[in-house]
Design a binder for these strands. Structure first.
Length: 678
DNA sequence: GCGAAGGTGTTTTTT
DNA sequence: ACACCTTCGC
């Protein structure tokens, strides 16, 4: 099991706290994951049945890790019964069993951003509005924000002085109507619909309230109103809600996270016990002092002071670099030096940045120096076009009412159903108020469509129907998917489209990787099904690792590149925090629009507190933007750090300028020579 | 119905 | 600088 004596007094109090609401204010590196997992193990040890335990996290990775760590303490069987999942997969789980009460069918599709984008652009076109990608993105963003704040399509109120909100008021209800017609929900619906379902079905709510006797929430500072409402509903029975968080690490206001959820917790749950975890076990005293002094500049916060018994360690480096390439070069040089001097592994290093696009320069330099790395975030595996195309087939097979995905593949690969025909089908569908899939079954009723196209439509319908039946056999899932890949000849299509044979090869390998992904899913699940697989990958947040990446992961020895947001909850011996410039950190958008400098400071705080032994801050003097050089100012946060702990250096002059300089001096030399001779 | 050329905007963070 | 989308021409 585990030893209570290995915990400090506050940790022990938290672990052994029994019934009643508990707020755990856990500073960075204070062992909060350990406390949650130990608390779960302790509850089981005290006789709580695993089925009665609910633990909610924000990312799949966090859920997976929690599950693993609890399993180490309680054994496999106990963990199996527990509900340890993300908010979103909890929503899926509840909706999969009960969504029919909201008028959806249980085989609903889950729309990711690209599906939403297709749908909203279509709706904008129909509404006669600008259907550019940018406006569609704005719409999705606004609808998402509304859903996060528990505002349904019918309740949405446009604001007078906000022109875009009027368009939202038109599109949002139509969007919702379309989703329902397609038997689809988006990410935010997974939470909002779950809340509405439980609110409307008291006996269902009572069932879940009785079932989950103890509820635990990690990263509580990041909950938004829907998530909070869901928690209030689920915990409303036993009120044994234990939330763990750190207001100083609240960095998701942009997706509706409400910091007052943690600041005002005891108002909603009277009698809350508050325990602070302030001892940091992660960072050197120097790094911690810098973090403390930085975050002290924030106004609204629960006062706390992290302390450590660790020695001071290294000074914090600040390297003022010339440009992006120089910044990358400095990082790689330091990685070389550190691996050599201190026998560090590549996995000891993390490179953190504010925006995903900053990764490019580092990737190039690391590749040039043959240093293995993994890139977290950015373009996700399941967001890549070739993957989405294949998944669109699976979604259509499962739920042909899902017209976004149906239309995506109806002529991909090209089978002779052209735009004109598709337009006509869509028009007919609107006129007769009938689903497209339904219309496709009787193609003879289309008068304006040629015989060739009609045959193609019939073949397409037959294809989908045939796979609908073969995919029903759970024992032949892999074979059937392999057969589908072969039959579609998607590889040929990719070769035709892609000019560069190497990228074509990569994309095909990506597509084949789905087979491995399905294989892994089948191994993990007792009752595998195509629907289960598609749901699982719809919720995935991480790249399942391509072929190259897999070898790296096996060796486990790679440098990690990721955004500051993705870095929360992780730790590394050496952290490079790149782009310490005005405009990046704090980000330009936060200055122009939201004016929330505090959140940017928290983001910086999160970055600093990832470091165990050595922290290197970097910034560039100039950067290329849209192809043009732009001068950059050092981040204001640098001035908020204790200067005596900071070792500032000008990094080397880049090779370009060096050559220019050399050329100039050479020219001068030759001119002088000529004067002398002349 | 399909490919080529030009024009546009692109870069905040995520489930 | 580049990728993506739209438009145009066949």
């Amino acid at each position: 099991m585990f030893d209570l004596n290995q915990l400090n007094p506050q940790q022990r109090q938290a672990v052994t706290h029994g019934a009643g609401p508990l707020l755990l204010l856990a500073g960075a590196g204070s062992g909060k994951t350990r406390v949650i997992t130990c608390r779960i193990a302790h509850l089981v040890q005290q006789g709580t049945s695993p089925e009665q335990i609910l633990a909610v996290t924000f990312t799949n990775k966090a859920a997976r890790e929690m599950r693993e760590r609890v399993q180490e303490m309680t054994g496999r069987n106990a963990v199996k019964g527990m509900t340890i999942s993300t908010f979103h997969s909890l929503g899926v789980q509840i909706l999969k069993s009960h969504i029919d009460r909201l008028g959806f069918k249980r085989n609903f599709s889950i729309y990711a951003t690209s599906d939403q984008l297709r749908l909203v652009r279509e709706l904008l076109r129909e509404a006669g509005a600008d259907s550019s990608n940018r406006d569609a993105e704005q719409m999705i963003w606004r609808i998402s924000a509304a859903k996060n704040r528990l505002i349904d399509a019918g309740q949405y109120q446009p604001t007078l002085r906000d022109p875009l909100s009027h368009l939202v008021a038109t599109i949002y209800p139509r969007y919702q109507k379309a989703l329902k017609a397609y038997n689809a929900v988006d990410f935010d619906d997974l939470l909002l619909l779950t809340v509405r379902l439980l609110e409307g079905q008291s006996e269902l709510l009572a069932h879940y309230q009785q079932r989950f006797v103890y509820q635990m929430v990690d990263e509580y500072q990041d909950t938004n109103p829907v998530q909070y409402q869901l928690l209030k509903l689920l915990a409303g029975g036993h009120k044994n809600l234990c939330v763990v968080g750190d207001d100083d690490q609240s960095i998701y206001a942009f997706r509706g996270a409400d910091i007052s959820n943690i600041l005002d917790f005891e108002k909603d749950f009277p009698g809350t016990r508050i325990i602070k975890l302030e001892q940091n076990y992660r960072s050197s005293a120097t790094i911690l002092a810098a973090a403390n002094q930085l975050i002290a500049n924030n106004r609204q916060r629960r006062p706390k002071t992290l302390w450590t018994s660790s020695p001071a360690g290294y000074a914090i480096d600040y390297l003022r670099c010339e440009d992006s390439e120089d910044e990358a070069r400095q990082v790689v040089e330091l990685i070389h030096a550190e691996t050599f001097r201190h026998q560090r592994k590549f996995s000891d290093f993390a490179i953190l940045y504010r925006t995903n696009t900053q990764s490019r320069a580092f990737e190039e330099q690391l590749r040039y120096d043959n240093i293995p790395y993994v890139l977290i975030g950015g373009q996700q595996f399941f967001d890549r076009k070739e993957i989405r195309d294949l998944v669109a087939y699976l979604r259509t097979i499962l739920n042909p009412a899902d017209e976004v995905n149906l239309l995506r593949i109806i002529n991909y690969p090209k089978r002779g159903i052209g735009e004109n025909s598709i337009d006509q089908i869509i028009r007919r569908s609107a006129e007769q108020n009938a689903g497209i899939w339904q219309l496709l079954q009787q193609p003879e009723q289309f008068d304006g469509i040629g015989q060739k196209t009609l045959t193609a439509i019939a073949e397409f319908v037959a294809l989908i129907k045939s796979y609908q039946s073969t995919f029903k056999n759970p024992l032949r899932l892999l074979d059937t998917l392999r057969q589908l890949l072969n039959e579609l000849k998607l590889a040929d299509e990719i070769y035709r489209q892609e000019k560069d044979p190497q990228t074509a090869q990569r994309r095909i390998e990506n597509q084949n990787e789905i087979l491995n992904s399905l294989g892994a899913y089948i191994e993990r699940n007792e009752r595998p099904s195509l629907a289960g697989f598609v749901d699982a990958i719809s919720l995935l947040d991480a790249d399942p690792a391509g072929k190259d990446d897999k070898e790296k992961l096996l060796s486990g020895n790679t440098v990690t590149l990721m955004s500051l947001h993705s870095s929360k909850g992780l730790e590394f011996p050496v952290v490079f925090l790149a782009g310490m410039e005005e405009g990046f950190l704090p980000h330009k958008k936060s200055l122009d629009v939201t004016c929330d400098i505090d959140e940017e400071r928290r983001l910086c705080y999160v970055g600093i507190t990832r470091a165990e032994q050595r922290l290197v801050l970097l910034g560039a003097r100039q950067r290329r933007k849209h192809g043009k050089l732009e001068l950059r100012e050092p981040s204001r946060f640098l001035a908020e750090l204790p200067q005596q702990l900071l070792a500032t250096r000008q990094a080397g002059v880049p090779a370009d300028d060096g050559e220019e300089q050399q050329e100039k001096s050479a020219n001068q030399f030759f001119q002088q020579m000529q004067q002398l001779l002349g």
